[in-house]
Design a protein around this nucleic acid. Structure first.
Length: 284
DNA sequence: GGCCAGGAACGTT
DNA sequence: AACGTTCATGGC
């Protein structure tokens, strides 16, 4: 079954927004959607469902996002245009709230490949295997709330283990309900998210963008920080100044632009080994 | 071996 | 409010 809505699966699944999908030897991609096994393939720039629920898969891959309109709103600026040319039809997907939150709590000061490794270790140790799946489902916050910190550290989390455990326990206690707060407007939602252990502004913006579908949210990591400085011709700024600049400069779907910039920049580094001539890592 | 990675928390000015 | 430090782990 071919679903409507253009998509580039490799750009979408290997751009550091989700960490459990795997390309199979036959070229299809295997993962989970709504905790159900899913296998999909890109056919003619569209998504073909080979296993799983088409409705769940369409929702997970956010095939309802109007890519043409989003692309039309990309800023008229060289870096954004180059990124759009490189990875058009990359989609920002709609992830389960807790799974997205948990993986990005573990993301701080880790490379994308490490985040993937930690996520898989947690799935194997604490998760469960749905019938016919290739990878275990991510454990619920209630399951992780029962884990010991040492068991989490054994998954390679280091100091992040305490934060993941504390947030899992908070959610399990009912102090915060991830579904209920989804009715809040973005700034209020961001504020609630940043009260949780291990979630600062950057991780909150990842959750807002990749799970809550707030497409104007811009996570500013080391890569985006450097790119914004290049756009500003090297003019430095505080974190909040750069955030304001990004919102204004990247337009109404700033989160989408951000993801294309991030993915393109990382692809260039893999090809050429170099980053940018302006060196200025974010501090604090 | 030094350096850096999709940062956050906390202390000091 | 703006900086500095510290926090584990792994790859190059």
């Amino acid at each position: 079954m071919i679903l409507p809505g253009a998509i580039h699966l490799q750009h979408t699944l290997e751009s550091g927004q989700v960490f459990h999908w795997d390309r199979q030897p036959d070229g299809s991609w295997a993962g989970l959607a709504d905790a159900m096994p899913a296998r999909v393939r890109e056919v003619d720039g569209h998504l073909a469902v080979e296993q799983g629920s088409p409705d769940s898969i369409a929702r997970f891959f956010a095939l309802d996002h109007d890519l043409e309109s989003i692309h039309k709103n990309f800023p008229d600026e060289p870096l954004s245009r180059a990124a759009l040319e490189y990875c058009g039809n990359l989609r920002i997907i709609r992830q389960p709230l807790w799974e997205c939150m948990a993986t990005f709590i573990t993301s701080s000061m880790k490379q994308v490949s490490h985040i993937r490794g930690m996520s898989l270790a947690i799935r194997h140790r604490f998760g469960w295997m749905p019938d016919g799946a290739c990878v275990p489902a991510y454990p619920s916050f209630s399951s992780l709330a029962l884990a010991g910190e040492q068991d989490l550290r054994a998954c390679g989390l280091g100091y992040r283990a305490g934060n993941l455990l504390a947030t899992a326990r908070l959610l399990d206690s009912g102090a915060v309900n991830l579904e209920k707060i989804s009715r809040l407007r973005t700034p209020a939602l961001r504020k609630v998210l940043t009260t949780l252990p291990g979630i600062g502004v950057k991780v909150a913006n990842c959750i807002l963008l990749f799970a809550y579908g707030r497409l104007d949210s811009v996570p500013i990591d080391t890569w985006i920080h450097r790119l914004l400085l290049v756009m500003r011709a090297g003019r430095p700024g505080t974190a909040s100044q750069l955030a304001r600049y990004a919102r204004r400069r990247l337009g109404p779907s700033a989160g989408y632009v951000q993801q294309y910039l991030f993915h393109h920049a990382r692809a260039l580094k893999r090809l050429h080994g170099a980053k940018f001539t302006l060196d200025s890592r974010p501090r604090g």
